[in-house]
């Protein structure tokens, strides 16, 4: 207990925990849509697009008067538009195009980092991030944008679920399915672009995927899946930050690993305890 009090009395830990709870919670909620819409790879590709924005920001951002967040946002939105539009090229599937984008964006960010000494020094942060170094302003920004995303999802919750489940019927009921679909993509893209620099690609992508898997492995009702997803990333964030502080481990990867272990535990519990009874 003393150790916990010691850890969480540190200002930077408090800010880091708040950032991981807010970002992780929002990503965990949005991740349920990613899994249900079967567009997991879109999350990975958008994260990589946002990462390109960050490294481009490192190299030329100051010359064109744009900061890292703006460029991460810009690249994410480009990705959102690209994935949302019904792009196809003959027999090439949309999944292939998403995979292609992921590879291209990854290659681009590595090349840019390699050619820029300043960016190269921060390379590891781009992937694993360092959520404990989040500034007060970053936390404010994360809170503000996360609140907007949550408000949008509260207002359009039932419509978002409908168009994710059955877009054709939604259209016949005069519900603008394409527009709502775009809004889902957009909120995912914004959440990624906001979190990518402070929390790192690994934390963001794992927060989009693993909590939703935990929720879906435990529950069959949508409300409980959303709730379990968010709670699971909160637990992982709390435990991850404590372990990271205590054993001097990178915070983002520790939270992701804890969350991944939680998913395995859920599967085992379900397999051996729930089905066994």
């Amino acid at each position: 207990m003393d150790l916990l009090i010691e850890i969480f009395s540190e200002r930077f830990i408090q800010v880091g925990l708040a950032a991981s709870l807010i970002l992780g919670g929002v990503c965990a909620y949005l991740g349920v849509f990613l899994i249900l819409k079967r567009i997991v790879f879109v999350g990975a590709a958008l994260s990589q697009m946002a990462a390109v924005g960050v490294v481009v920001g490192h190299v030329i951002g100051h010359r064109i008067g744009l900061n890292l967040e703006s460029l991460a946002f810009l690249f994410s939105i480009l990705g959102v538009l690209f994935f949302w539009l019904p792009v196809s090229a003959g027999s090439i599937t949309k999944e292939s195009i998403i995979g292609y984008t992921y590879i291209f964006a990854s290659a681009l960010s590595i090349i840019i980092i390699a050619k820029d000494p300043m960016a190269e020094a921060e390379n590891i942060d781009l992937f694993s991030g360092n959520i404990l170094f989040v500034s007060g302003f970053d936390l404010f920004l994360i809170s503000l944008i996360s609140s907007l995303i949550i408000i949008v999802h509260i207002i359009f919750r039932k419509e978002f679920v409908f168009v994710s489940f059955d877009p054709t019927t939604a259209q016949t009921l005069k519900i603008p399915a394409r527009l709502y679909d775009f809004l889902i993509y957009l909120t995912i893209g914004i959440a990624i672009s906001v979190g990518i620099r402070s929390a790192g690609m690994l934390f963001i992508f794992s927060s989009l995927i693993i909590p939703a898997l935990i929720g879906m492995s435990l529950f069959r009702r949508l409300f409980w899946i959303f709730l379990a997803s968010v709670i699971s990333i909160w637990i992982a964030s709390f435990v991850g930050i404590v372990l990271s502080y205590t054993f001097d481990m990178p915070t983002g990867p520790t939270i992701s690993a804890i969350n991944a272990i939680m998913f395995l535990c859920c599967l085992l519990v379900k397999r051996f305890l729930i089905r066994g009874t």
């Binding site: 249900l36 039932k158 419509e159 679920v161 409908f162 994710s164 489940f165 059955d166 054709t168 019927t169 939604a170 009921l173 005069k174 519900i175 879906m216 529950f219 069959r220 009702r221 949508l222 899946i225």
Partner: peptide
Amino acid sequence: FVDQVFPLTAREIVSMGRYR
């Protein structure tokens, strides 16, 4: 064409008819 594993109950799906 409808997602067979989407975690919704029959009542929740029928309620979508009211959304308009």
